[in-house]
Design a protein around this nucleic acid. Structure first.
Length: 381
DNA sequence: TATTCGTGGGC
DNA sequence: TGCCCAAGAAT
């Protein structure tokens, strides 16, 4: 039969793969026990979709609930200080999302929410995926979403062998979705496709027996579903060793706020930096305090070592108790410095690795009176 | 087009 | 246990 098509059409014609009806039936069944309730309120959809960028639903849920209590509408968000916004985002990662959300809320405060994908995409922090998701769910616009789930599901359904990033694969996926997305419930179709990817069409060991469109799946029919989409080899990530100082002055410790652009932008941290080759951690911390806050310190005993992994490198944070010697703390390499009582650190937003240092700091046993102990012990690697 | 942006969970 | 992956966007 296929040969007839090829004879009649010189260019290979894409066969229809009518997935919408079985997919939507399946979605309505599983939607009953979704762990979350989707509204069509633009603000709620917007917030949740931004939180869901590169982040799984189970991670997002508690953040989303807390967020909607603290910032119930766009006006509340627009009027909040960035520090409070980052505190609400603390631990969720990719902090530019929070800064963009905040900035977009201020742009929107007096206006109306966008009503089309094109208009949503002009807001900071909203790209092709998020704009399409909001427009289809909140505004009922017939636009398909393309995220990691959709790419995987469609690559298997159509047996796309080219890497997803290739323009050929992109075109094929686009054409397929444009054709199959129903006009009546585009948002349900999009969510169904993503939900299928999340719970059935898994990256490894897909559960084809539970799949509502398994009989339409060319990858499955050919038995190559496990190998699709084609993976691209990952680069190995660098590793850094970092020295960090918990610098005491009386009953307070010094924290610095990171510049708003870049990694962990706008969050607070204990000053420190990468250890240079053949440098002791004591020297690293001493040098970094000089460079970052213009202060002379004395390094004491190690508090804790925290391994941590970011998206594109890994670190080991070696945290040392220190004592202030001379010089007032200045914000030389950051946006601000502050002396804080340990119990008040909870008010500020810290990256997760620094949270682990704080945790160690607040454990009763870990709080030696630094004035007595630190002279005797010296910091080594 | 390629890199830089976090973190948690699964196996 | 070290990888892999995740409802991507900005630059």
């Amino acid at each position: 039969m296929e040969s007839i098509l090829i004879v009649r059409a010189p260019r290979p014609t894409i066969r229809r793969v009518p997935i919408a009806p079985p997919l939507l039936r399946w979605f309505r069944r599983v939607a009953r026990d979704l762990p979350w309730r989707r509204t069509r309120d633009p603000y709620a959809v917007w917030v949740s979709e931004v939180m869901l960028q590169q982040t799984q639903i189970t991670t997002v849920l508690p953040y989303y609930d807390r967020w909607m209590k603290r910032f119930p509408d766009v006006r509340a968000l627009a009027r909040a200080r960035l520090d409070r916004v980052l505190k609400a985002w603390e631990g969720l990662g990719y902090y530019a999302r929070a800064r963009h959300l905040h900035r977009a809320a201020r742009l929107l405060e007096r206006g109306r929410f966008p009503t089309t994908k094109e208009a949503w995409e002009t807001l900071p922090g909203i790209g092709p995926y998020t704009a399409a998701a909001i427009a289809s769910i909140a505004n009922g616009e017939r636009v398909p979403v393309r995220d990691g789930n959709v790419h995987r599901v469609v690559a298997r359904l159509l047996r796309i062998e080219a890497p997803i990033s290739s323009s050929a694969a992109q075109r094929e996926i686009n054409a397929f979705l444009e054709r199959e997305i129903p006009a009546r419930v585009p948002g349900d179709f999009n969510q169904a496709l993503m939900e299928l990817g999340q719970r059935v069409c898994l990256p490894r060991s897909p559960r084809c027996g539970e799949c509502p469109v398994t009989t339409l799946c060319r990858g499955r029919i050919a038995g190559v579903q496990e190998d699709l989409p084609r993976r691209v080899p990952r680069k190995t990530v660098p590793h850094y060793e970092v020295g960090v100082g918990i610098c005491w002055k009386g009953d307070r410790v010094l924290v610095a706020r990171r510049p708003e652009r870049g990694l962990l932008g706008g969050l607070w941290e204990f000053p420190g930096g990468k250890r240079r080759p053949s440098e002791t951690y004591a020297r690293t911390v001493t040098r970094e305090f000089r460079e970052e806050v213009g202060m002379e310190i004395e390094v004491g005993p190690r508090l804790v070592t925290v391994p941590h992994r970011y998206s594109h490198f890994s670190v080991e944070l070696h945290a040392y108790h220190c004592r202030w010697r001379k010089g007032s703390a200045r914000a030389l390499a950051n946006d601000g410095v502050r002396w804080v009582r340990p119990r008040d650190l909870a008010r500020l937003a810290f990256p997760t690795a620094n949270r682990k240092i704080i945790e160690a700091l607040l454990r009763p046993r870990s709080l030696p009176s630094p004035d007595k102990t630190q002279r005797r012990q010296s910091a080594t690697r």
